[in-house]
Amino acid sequence: MSEIKPHVVEMYGKRILLLNNFIEDCILPNPLIADVWLVNHQERSKVRKFLRSVVRSHDMRVYLKPIYLEDNLRPFFMDDERVMQRLSDGFFGNTDPLQIATLTDQVAYFIEKHRHGRKEKASQQEQILQYIFDYNYTRRSKIVPMRLHQSLTGYAYPRIDSFFFNRSDAYLNSRNILKEAEEQGYLKRTYFDTQHLCKSCSSGFLNYHEVCPKCHEHDLKASNLIHHFRCAYVGPETDFVAHDKLVCPKCSVQLKNVGVDYDKPGKMFTCNNQRCNHQFQEAPIQVGCVDCGTEQETYELVVKKVYQYELSEKGIQRFLFREEQVSLQHG
């Protein structure tokens, strides 16, 4: 740490640390040398790594530190931008200076009050819950799920997920921690969304295809049926196509006005599998998992609800004000 020369600037009466060199080497700076940290590194993978190590820090002076992103980094983050915002306190330029100052003061006050007497937590789960309460209490925020295609199911809780190193651990553990805390009354939940997940790997990235009911291949050709009123001929649209016109194969008359000469009473699938060529109207839907490739029926999918959480009074009391007296009981 001593090798890196911290670059600190004064602004609005607060000391702001530019994180450039720390991010490059992924080293956490000494929390005492500045009030606010500013991300000004362009390489998004390194920034993400740095922000995640901040979350995972055991020092509340680190993980509660107000961290902002430099505005001109936006183009470099590309589709990680929303995650970056979630893992930090937002873009510097978008934020009211007064708000930054308030947050800094609140965090400083909170740390002053709670730092002493904190014990090392018994389990990772408790440490994470402690983090959740510390962070969301100082930020007055809720734990909101976020649509994210890098996650396993398509929904993530970026801060909680940062504690884990792969997507499926992150999914299983973060949901579990939140669920248990809710069951014990420390968190309140509200419905957010419902998901259908792969039965074998819980992935939310699924490919729905219509399949042939006989051979289960999904290479199908769909064709509209046409009913020619005048002669009562009914057949797929391909029967009628002659150059760029529709001509009835039974009476050789050109079809002009839909609703007057003809209509389309339904559609028909043809299986392109040469050994099958089955023709049918009702194509069952089959689901293929994009991640693990498992093919499954729609009814086999795992249905999960996604919730948004907020701190409950009981939880605040338990984690922030009475922690010394009560011992944790996790089932």
């Binding site: 049926l225 009913h227 009914v234 029967d239 339904g266 109207q281």
Partner: peptide, 22 residues
């Protein structure tokens, strides 16, 4: 073996012709 459905009623002749087609 084959169940065909028209969403719009077209009359018995057209229904028979649809069945004949397949």
């Amino acid at each position: 073996d084959i169940f065909l459905r028209c969403d719009e009623r077209g009359g018995k002749a057209s229904a028979a012709n649809l069945g004949l087609r397949y």
